[in-house]
């Protein structure tokens, strides 16, 4: 790992100011960034650690929405969101392993937007709103392809607001070496319709599956998905699975999620 300066601001304002330094990068839980630094795939001059900022941590209900601070760990979301939004708490409880969940944060996961990460599916599938130090971004506008988001340089995810569906389930097919999803589906049933988000599958990162949403909005059964297929052309194809295989798994995982809710 190349060396760098590290700063530990106590407030979002100080973090934003520290991120103004040349080649500065934010560090949240570090469960992806630290291995990346070790592999010398990133070489910032300054790391701005967000872990000491208390105002970024916490889980609360406000205006009917579940509001999670950007610096809240997966472990804390798993515990504290359970009473309000069990489908999302269950997603958080299955990220990585217990020690990783005690460091990794929702803001870090969403800022990184790994094409196989769990939280992007939860945020997009819920129709969440991502709050930063300067604005609010709808999940539909936030995810912009593999490792790409609407965030500008130096912009920090301060909070994520989730509308709470009447039922939701995250089903993942684990890639056994990395334990990341090979393909996973997040299905959320709201009074005015169903949202389906898929992670792990596409070359373009997390995406919604509109045909499945329409079918499930008219009949919330696994059978409603019968005959619906996705093309393997835009899917990730690697030694773990072909694009066609991943496309098939999208249907299987979505059906499993629905079947567990009916």
């Amino acid at each position: 790992m190349y060396n760098f300066d590290i700063e530990r601001p106590g407030t979002v304002a100080d973090a934003v100011s520290a991120l103004g330094r040349e080649e500065a990068q934010p560090l949240s839980g570090g469960q992806t960034l630290i291995p990346t630094l070790k592999a010398r795939l990133a070489a910032p001059s300054v790391l701005v650690s967000l872990s000491g900022i208390e105002e970024l941590k916490g889980v609360r209900m406000e205006g009917g929405k579940l509001c999670i601070g950007g610096g809240t760990t997966h472990g804390r979301v798993a515990r504290e969101a359970e009473a309000h939004y069990p489908g999302l708490a269950s997603l958080a409880a299955r990220i990585g392993d217990p020690a990783v969940r005690n460091r990794g944060t929702i803001g870090g996961s969403l800022a990184n937007n790994d094409p196989s990460a769990c939280y992007p599916a939860g945020a997009l599938g819920s129709g969440a709103t991502i709050l930063t130090n300067s604005r609010e971004i709808a999940a539909d506008d936030y995810f912009q392809g593999m490792f790409s988001t609407a965030l500008e340089e130096g912009e920090i995810v301060t909070e994520v607001r989730f509308p709470v569906p009447s039922a939701a389930r995250y089903e993942k097919f684990i890639q056994p070496a990395s334990r990341f999803p090979l393909v996973a589906a997040f299905v959320a049933r709201f009074e005015d319709g169903v949202r389906v988000a898929i992670t792990g599958a596409s070359n373009n990162g997390v995406f919604r599956w509109p045909e499945a949403e329409v079918a499930l909005s008219s009949s919330f059964t696994a059978d409603a998905l019968e005959g619906l297929t996705l093309s393997g052309d835009e899917m990730i194809s690697d030694l773990h699975g072909s694009g066609q295989y991943r496309a098939h798994l999208c249907g299987v995982m979505t059906k499993r999620a629905v079947a567990s809710l009916v």
Binding site: G30, I34, S49, G75
Partner: peptide
């Protein structure tokens, strides 16, 4: 794995400064 403020963490994936 060690405990930091009572929680299990992987000490190879956390900086000493933190």
């Amino acid at each position: 794995v060690v405990h930091v403020n009572g929680e299990a963490v992987k000490s190879c994936t956390m900086f000493a400064v933190e």
